[in-house]
Amino acid sequence: MTSPFRNQGQAKSCSNWNAQVYGISSHSLRAVLGWGAYNPIIGHEGVGTVAKLGQNVSNTSIGQRVGLKWLYNACTECNTCKCGFKHYCPNQQNTSRHVPGTLQQYALADANFITPIPNGLSSEIAAPLLCAGLTMSGALSHLETSLAPGDWVVISGSGGGLGHVGVQMAARLNKYRVIAIDSGEEKKEISLSSGAEVFIDFKTENVAKRVAEITGEGAHATIVVPGTKEAFEMAPAVVRNLGIIVNVGLPRNDIEIPISATICAARGSSVGTEEQMAELLQYALQGVITPAIEVFEFSEVPRLIQALIDDGIKGRAVVTIPYDT
C-alpha cells in the first residue's frame, strides 16, 4: 500500500511525495561520497501532506500531515518483526537507499510506516526528529536497563545534528549527567545549551584524561555519533569497566576498528521504534526537545553537502522544497 505525499520537511534527506521541508545528514553525505549503495534521489526523512491514496489505504487521509523515515517498510513476517522490532528487520527497505528519497516534490510512501505529525508542531522542527531524534532515541534505549538518573554518559559529536538532540534527550528525559565531546566554540555553545554538564574539545584536550577526572572511574556509557575511526577508537577509553558503548555513526565501509572484548560491552544502534517516534514528537510539541535548526532554500543543497564534508554544520540544516499549489 503506497500513498504519494506533498513533502513539507526533512532533516537528513528526502523521500517521495509533495515537498516543503528537508534536512541534511550523514546518510546524504555517504550517498554523495559513494560510501554505500543509495538511490540517486537522496533524503531519508521528511514531512509532507498526503496528496493521493493508494488502493486499500485506510489508515490515513488526503491532506493529513505525516512524516517519512529511514525505515520505508519491513516484511512484518520474520521473527524480528513479530517480536516488535521492525526497525531491525533483515528484509527492510530504506528511504533513499532502496527507494527514491525525499529531496523532491512528491514521494511514494508505505502507508503502514508513516508517522502522523501532531497539530501545533512545525514541520521544520518535526523533520529532524524523524531521523536524528529517532536515531538517538533508539541509542538511548540501550541504556535504560543498565543506567540510572545521575549516571555519566559521554556523547561524542555533541554539537552536530544527532548529537545535540541526543544531549537534550539524555539530560532532560533520562536525567543523565552528560559529558559532551566536540570541537569549537559553536559546538560548545549548542552542547551546553542542550543540557550537557561538561564540554570537552577533542582537538585541544586529552578526552580520556578529562573524563576520568570528572567521573572518577570513567563514564557509565558513551554514545558514538561521528562516523570516524578516531571517535570509535576513543570510546573504550572513556567508559568504566562494564561500561556500555553504543555505536551510531556510519563510517566508510572499509574502516575496521579492533576493540578488545575485555574492555567494554559494545552495542550498535541504527534507529528507534515507531512508539519512540510518536513519544518524541510529543516531547517536541511540549517544547521539552527542540532541535536547533537553520532553514535553507533548495538551491543551497550543494553548499550544505560541502559543509557536511567540512564538518561545518551546527545543529541541523533543514531545506525547504518549493512546490506547485
Results as ranks from 00 to 15, higher is better:
90 P>V: 11
313 I>T: 08
309 I>C: 06
184 G>M: 05
303 R>F: 06
222 T>Y: 00
158 S>C: 05
61 S>C: 06
157 G>R: 03
240 R>I: 10
120 G>E: 13
181 I>A: 07
5 F>K: 05
12 K>V: 10
88 Y>C: 07
308 L>W: 07
314 K>D: 00
302 P>H: 11
191 S>R: 11
226 P>M: 10
312 G>P: 04
87 H>G: 11
221 A>I: 15
308 L>C: 15
84 G>T: 01
319 V>N: 13
281 L>M: 11
102 T>L: 14
147 L>M: 15
279 E>A: 13
240 R>Q: 13
40 P>Q: 10
20 Q>E: 13
290 T>D: 00
76 T>P: 03
14 C>T: 02
196 A>C: 11
214 I>G: 05
61 S>Y: 04
21 V>T: 04
164 H>S: 14
212 A>F: 06
109 A>T: 02
250 L>K: 09
161 G>D: 06
136 M>L: 14
78 C>L: 14
35 W>P: 02
121 L>N: 08
150 G>A: 04
4 P>N: 13
35 W>M: 10
179 I>E: 04
315 G>P: 03
85 F>G: 09
274 E>V: 02
32 V>I: 05
279 E>K: 09
180 A>H: 10
277 M>F: 12
180 A>W: 04
202 F>A: 09
275 E>Q: 13
321 I>W: 14
266 A>M: 15
255 I>E: 15
44 H>T: 02
177 R>P: 01
287 G>H: 13
88 Y>T: 01
294 E>F: 09
280 L>R: 04
14 C>M: 09
276 Q>I: 03
35 W>Y: 12
238 V>R: 00
101 G>C: 05
9 G>F: 02
236 P>V: 13
10 Q>F: 07
35 W>D: 15
299 S>G: 03
69 K>L: 13
50 V>Q: 14
287 G>T: 02
224 V>C: 01
137 S>E: 08
290 T>Y: 00
310 D>Y: 07
185 E>G: 01
42 I>Q: 05
132 A>N: 03
293 I>S: 06
165 V>K: 06
313 I>V: 12
272 G>L: 04
45 E>K: 00
200 I>Q: 10
295 V>Q: 15
16 N>S: 08
86 K>R: 12
